[in-house]
């Protein structure tokens, strides 16, 4: 039976892991390569780097990190942030990323996703959707871009469907309302997107407890759970999350005891 995946996410800025709340108030959380190695050893099913480096000059630092990580970590590596054109995708894949996550550039030019899926295979193309609930609505969300600063007005569910139709391999769905709050995934949003499309959905934004991860799978129906702060802050190891999920009857790949 296909296992639900646990994916630690590392927000990377200028070569360091950082963590903030709602994309602001960043603080240092360690070395990305060491963190990726530790998570992988603990049973992480994949690793995701989200690069939030502002300057183009520091892009080379990211490629080095990706190369070092891919050389030493034998689980799939997804890298996103600042991917705007074909060259960005190609450079990240050549540095050793298995998948590239694309956000703002998909909104600016949706056919970019189709072109990239045709060029590199759907399995290499993840579309990241930052969704925020419309104030006063219970089941309507719009898509935000540019690190959560710009409301595109696009309906998040319709956008997820369109991206799946355009050949995205997976959707990385982040709730802007929950990100960094540790209040749990937006389960209504997650379920709505999962039910709308036939490609895997990675739930993101808001995990604070073990039960939140379980709920993302059980109630949200997600295929994978992405989390950052519960791992970086040392609240839980990946192995502890997996032991809990196994206890709760969720199918996950058990951590290896080596």
């Amino acid at each position: 039976m296909l296992a639900k995946r646990i994916i630690p996410c590392l927000d990377v800025k200028d070569g360091r892991v950082v963590k903030g709340v709602n994309f602001v108030g960043l603080r240092d959380a360690g070395d990305p390569v060491e963190s990726a190695q530790r998570y992988s050893a603990g049973g992480a099913d994949e690793i995701t780097f989200l690069d939030i480096t502002a300057s183009h000059e520091n892009r080379r630092t990211l490629f080095d990190l990706v190369d070092q990580t891919a050389s030493t970590v034998a689980v799939p590596l997804t890298v996103g942030g600042g991917v705007r054109e074909r060259r960005d995708v190609s450079e990240l894949l050549h540095a050793g990323a298995d998948k590239v996550s694309i956000n703002s550039a998909a909104v600016a030019n949706p056919t970019f996703i189709r072109d990239m899926a045709e060029a590199y295979g759907a399995q290499a193309i993840v579309v990241a959707i930052d969704a925020k609930r419309i104030p006063g609505e219970t089941d309507k969300w719009t898509v935000y871009t540019h690190g959560g600063r710009r409301d595109t007005g696009l309906d998040a569910i319709a956008w997820a469907k369109r991206m799946a139709d355009y050949g995205a391999g997976e959707i990385l769905l982040t709730s802007m309302d929950r990100d960094g709050t540790q209040d749990g995934y937006d389960l209504v949003l997650t379920r709505a997107v999962v039910d709308a499309i036939s490609i895997p959905v990675i739930a993101s934004g808001g995990v604070g407890t073990l039960a939140h991860v379980r709920d993302g799978f059980a109630a949200g129906g997600a295929d994978a759970a992405l989390a950052a702060s519960i791992f970086h802050d040392g609240h839980y190891t990946v192995a502890e999350v997996k032991e809990y999920l196994l206890d709760q009857g969720v199918c996950v790949r058990p951590p290896e005891r080596n």
Partner: peptide
Amino acid sequence: AEGGRLKVPHIGWNQIESTHPVFENEEWYY
């Protein structure tokens, strides 16, 4: 087995059933 819809592509970790010497039965692969 529970009636849930399975997605295509098949992406992620799954187990193998094997009695062959180069594999361990029920090992997980990506």
